[in-house]
Amino acid sequence: MSRSDVLVDADWVQARLDDPKVVIVEVDEDTSAYEKNHIRNAVRIDWKSDLQDPVRRDFIDQAGFEALLSAKGIANDQTVVLYGGNNNWFASYAYWYFKLYGHGDVRLLDGGRKKWELDSRELVVEVPERAATAYKAQAVDSSIRAFRDDVIAAIGNLNLVDVRSPDEFSGKLLAPAHLPQEQSQRPGHVPTAKNIPWAKNANDDGTFKSDDELRALYQEEGVDLAKDTIAYCRIGERSALTWFVLHELLDQPNVKNYDGSWTEYGSLVGVPIELGAN
């Protein structure tokens, strides 16, 4: 797989705003950003109300994903281009869902909303009308999702990449400083995890760093790229971006996102926890 199969630039998107084979989807941390404006013909997926199971702590099931994409007017044979704010943080999380449920062709807009804005490209308020489809999802691809027992088994054996900020990793904070504190019981990190904050994957303008820069970033922090990797953060969204970098851009064969992440691990009874910096 090459970079262009998973990542497209703003010119590529600009040229396909009216292409019936392409669906542009905005997914933002700030779910109201779409209402302010968005790329013309883009639809919105809300990471909170659309992608989470309304009762259990889990993501939506296969039938739920089919219903969501059908209602959004997204068909199996269309190319889905995801974008959002904050270096594509939540767009990457949605990308991981599309891969979990086996969508054929899904890509990220490099730089996301920020790059589009900094380029002074067109943004509109008009919401497109799309006819409903009959979307068929595949069974969940569990090879890209880690559960808590996978994480415990990985301690000292596989790469564990903790992508939270240094203050969360060391145990000074339980959540990023600008967010509500959805708390785990205990601060800290999984023993042997390397702390490589997710934002290090991106340039100032939100585009991803080059493959060589990214490879060097992980190797310099002690990640053995010959081994399998589990990435985690607090609730599995920032780590979906790191999963994208390792699995999709750098073609690492076995990378899992642990979406239970620290809010689960830091509340488990009896598991090992480490405090302090890398």
Binding site: G85, N86, K114, E117, L118, A199, K200, D204
Partner: peptide
């Protein structure tokens, strides 16, 4: 003007960004 502001620490490392 609409844009973004990034906060970088003493070592030039990214800390936060706001629109």
């Amino acid at each position: 003007v609409n844009g973004y502001v990034r906060l970088l620490d003493e070592g030039g490392e990214f800390t936060a960004e706001v629109p």
